[in-house]
Amino acid sequence: MPSMRRLSEKTLIHVVLIVGACMMIMPFLWMLTTSVKTQQDAIKFPPDIFPKQLVFMNYLDAFRQVDFSGYFLNTVIMTFGTTLLVFVTSVCAAYAFARLKFVGRELLFMTFLAMMMVPIPVYLVPSYVILSHLGWIDTFLALIIPWSVNIFAIFLLRQHFMTIPQELFDAARIDGFDHLNILMRIVIPLSKPVLVTVGVFQIVASWNSFLWPLIVTHSDSMRTIQTGLAYFAQAESTNYPLLCAASTFTIMPLVVLYFFVQRHIMESFARSGLKE
């Protein structure tokens, strides 16, 4: 009976896929259940899977112990500042690289691309020294400005801008549009999907960035949510309900975003290759 065999084969595939899915989400479920347990409940061994009583106070307590609302605000400022500037710098540069003729264009573009070959750890120490010369350490400038250019975004947008038909530009010139008008009225409206890709990628990358904020900020008032969580994890290293509550809070904004724009996130990560 071939149909029976097909059916059992499909069941087997589902079983394996479900086991896989469980392994992927188990840590998250464990984080969620721990986050609403009492400390006593949490350290029971062997542990109960479900909490005896739900303690949502853990979330409030985590907020009370360290300034998570401040960290959250800092992260929002950093994320939106960076993303906004990345849009401005990359749209402008990509437009020039794709549609304008000027001396040194290829050389400049190649130089930009070459910068992508250098791994991030190489930048840490010299950037720190440069930022301290500028007096930017422990300010938003240090968090935002060095990452206000995303070379890959320039590359991606340039590729896209080159596919826009020349006739549109010619017509716009005849109508007397200047470059800024062309950008705002033709190029940007025609590039929405790529711009979403760039934006989503940048938001996720900024929100999750850790090593950079760790080295360029010192004071508690400048901590981002990631460095704040790492700090909290050291200060409260054994209070797992609080740590899990804080972790849940940290990942929630992106997980919610993910469920809304899932396809865009997958696509932008697929195109850019590198996370972090």
Binding site: L17, G20, A21, M24, I25, P27, F28, W30, M31, T34, V204, W207, N208, F210, Q226, T227, L229, A230, A233, Y240, L243, C244, A246, S247, T248, T250, I251, L254, V255, L257, Y258, F259, Q262, I265, M266, F269, K275, E276
Partner: peptide, 24 residues
């Protein structure tokens, strides 16, 4: 559904995951 579930860890921060895995 499977794709959605498998992909969740990718968008979550390494710091938070490290805290949770340390507990695990």
């Amino acid at each position: 559904v499977y794709r959605t579930l498998y992909y969740i860890p990718v968008v979550t921060s390494t710091v938070a995951l490290s805290v949770v895995w340390k507990w695990i």
